[in-house]
């Protein structure tokens, strides 16, 4: 069964990295995957900036065309409605941050297939989602603006390169508490791939939750390998 998965959330919650990693994860299982860059509000660090890397691994990339990649305008990919309605295989949609970015999806919701699942990405170390009250308000504002009720949460609490297991376990507890308030399950936990080696501690932190191991693709200029 092919599935449409929409990642939305606040600015900087990690939607793009989660989308990229999730799409690659599906592709590596041999599934046909399309990733849709629906971010019309962020000027840097977007899915379209790693288009080549995704294509290499067989992920189809739907993004604003190259000629307007750096335009300071909210440009949508060509044929976006048709792709959302009739695109083959799995579709992963990376939505722009905050209610402002999510509004773009709101204008396309009639094109979403029935069964499309909206997953709200939350990082409890980010401004405006550090307390449960703030995070709850964020979920309501973003998902209302997107016109797609959430079906689950993605716990993506981290501290960049300083991320430790404690951040993962704190973030998961936070997301579970948020989920209890909203009646939503935590369907994925973002875990930096380099923490994989700490198997026991990680298993303890996840207590059965599903990890999504995250390699970083959206790199700062000095992090780009040779």
């Amino acid at each position: 069964m092919s599935q449409v998965t929409v990642f939305y959330g606040l600015y900087g919650s990690g939607k793009s990295e989660v989308s990229i990693n999730y799409a690659l994860c599906l592709a590596r299982e041999g599934r046909a995957v399309t990733i849709v860059d629906l971010d019309a509000v962020t000027p840097y660090f977007r899915v379209r900036d790693v288009r080549e890397r995704l294509l290499e691994e067989g992920v189809r990339v739907v993004a604003p065309k190259e000629s307007v990649r750096h335009a300071d305008l909210p440009v949508l990919p060509e044929g976006i409605r048709r792709i959302l309605m009739h695109g083959e295989g799995d579709i992963v949609v990376d939505v722009g941050g905050d209610p402002t970015g999510a509004r773009v999806l709101g204008g396309l919701k009639d094109a979403l297939r029935p069964g499309a699942r909206g997953l709200f990405v939350v990082n409890a170390n980010r401004p405006f989602s550090r307390t449960l009250d703030e995070a709850e308000e964020a979920v309501r504002r973003v998902t209302t603006s997107a016109g797609l009720p959430p079906q689950g949460l993605v716990s993506n609490t981290h501290m960049g390169e300083l991320t430790q297991i404690e951040h993962i376990s704190y973030g998961l507890e936070f997301a579970e508490a948020l989920g209890r308030r909203l009646g939503l399950p935590v369907v994925m936990v973002g875990v930096p791939a380099w923490l994989k080696s700490q198997e026991e501690e990680l298993a303890g932190a996840l207590h059965g939750a599903e990890p999504l191991y995250l390699e970083r693709y959206l790199l700062k200029p000095w992090e780009i390998p040779e």
């Binding site: 900087g12 409890a124 170390n125 980010r126 401004p127 981290h158 501290m159 300083l162 704190y170």
Partner: peptide, 16 residues
């Protein structure tokens, strides 16, 4: 949890 926050430069300068 630690007092650290993960912030974009723009947000951080505003808070500072």
């Amino acid at each position: 949890m630690s007092e650290s926050l993960l912030m974009k430069g723009n947000e951080a300068l505003a808070e500072a």
